[in-house]
Simulated scan of single mutants.
Amino acid sequence: MSVEHTWNMAGMRGTGSDTIIADDVFVPEEHVVFPARTALGPSTPRSVPKPQGLMGALAAPVLGMGMGPYDHIVAKLSGGRPLVSAMGSHARAIDSPGVQANVADAAMLIDSAILQAARTARTVDRATRTGTQMSPLAIARSRMDCGFAARQIRQAADKLLDVGGAGRFAESDPAQRIWRDLGTATRHPAFVTEIDREQYARLLLPVLSAQ
C-alpha cells in the first residue's frame, strides 16, 4: 500500500485527501460502500437518509469556518485597531459606521446560514426517527439550503476581511487560512446550487415537469 500525494490545493490542505493505492488487497463486500446505491436505498429508523445526511455533515464545518474569522476579526477590532486608509491613520476602526455595517452584515449572513442548515438538520432527523423517505421536494430544498448557506458564509468572511485589514492575510494569521479553506470547501459539488436550483424550480413549479 502506498500514498500518492495528489492533494495540492490552496485550501483544505489538512484533509488528507491524497490517493491511496492498494494492490492485491481483499476487501469484504460488507466493507464496500457504493454511493450511488446508498443514495437511493430506503431509510430505516436507525439510518440517516442519504445524500442529505452527508450534506448536513459537510455544512457543519463550513458554518464553523464562518464563526472562526468573525470571532477573530471582531476581537482584533475591539482591541483598538486604527482605521487606516489612503488618507492616513485615523480613529479606531470599530468606531467607523462602515466597519460597523460590515460586521452587522456578516453576523446576519452567518445567522441566516445557521438557520437554513438547521432546517435541513431537522428534516433529516425527522426522517431518521420515523424511518421515512424524504420527498423529492424536501431533498431539493435541503440541497439548496446547504448550498445557499455555504455561499452566505463565504460572503460573511469576505465582509469581515474587508474591514480586518491586510494584516489578516499574513501567513501567521488564522483568518487567511480559514479564508482559503472556505474558498475551497464551499466549491464542493454539494454546495454548487447552479444545477440544484433547476431541479428545485421544477419541483416548486410542477407545470415545468409536465412539459
Rank of each mutant, 00 (worst) to 15 (best):
G16W: 05
D18M: 10
A93H: 02
A91W: 03
A101Y: 09
I21L: 15
K76S: 08
G98H: 10
P42V: 01
A57N: 02
P35W: 00
A91C: 05
V48N: 08
K50H: 08
H72K: 06
G16T: 11
S78M: 10
G68P: 00
K76L: 11
S96P: 01
P69V: 11
M55S: 09
N102M: 15
G79E: 11
G64Y: 00
L109M: 13
P42L: 03
H31N: 14
R81T: 15
D24G: 13
G66V: 01
S85P: 00
N102R: 15
L83N: 13
D105N: 12
G64I: 05
V99Q: 01
M9V: 15
A107L: 10
M65I: 02
A93C: 07
P28L: 10
M55V: 06
I21Y: 02
A39H: 10
E30H: 12
M12V: 07
V99S: 12
M67P: 00
W7L: 09
Y70N: 02
M65F: 01
A57R: 03
S78D: 06
F34A: 05
Q100R: 14
A36T: 09
A59F: 01
S89P: 02
G16Y: 02
V27T: 02
M87V: 03
G64A: 07
I73Y: 01
V32K: 14
V48I: 15
G80N: 02
W7R: 09
D18P: 02
W7I: 04
G98I: 02
D18G: 11
P82H: 06
L83H: 12
G41Y: 07
D24C: 07
D18V: 09
L109C: 11
G11C: 15
P42N: 00
A59L: 15
D71A: 13
E30P: 00
A59K: 03
I21F: 05
D71I: 10
P61K: 04
F34N: 12
D71F: 08
Q52R: 07
G11Y: 14
T38P: 03
S78A: 14
P97M: 00
D18H: 15
G68A: 13
V27Y: 01
S96K: 04
A60E: 14
G11Q: 13
P61G: 04
G14K: 08
A10L: 13
H5C: 05
M67N: 07
R37A: 14
S78T: 10
D95C: 09
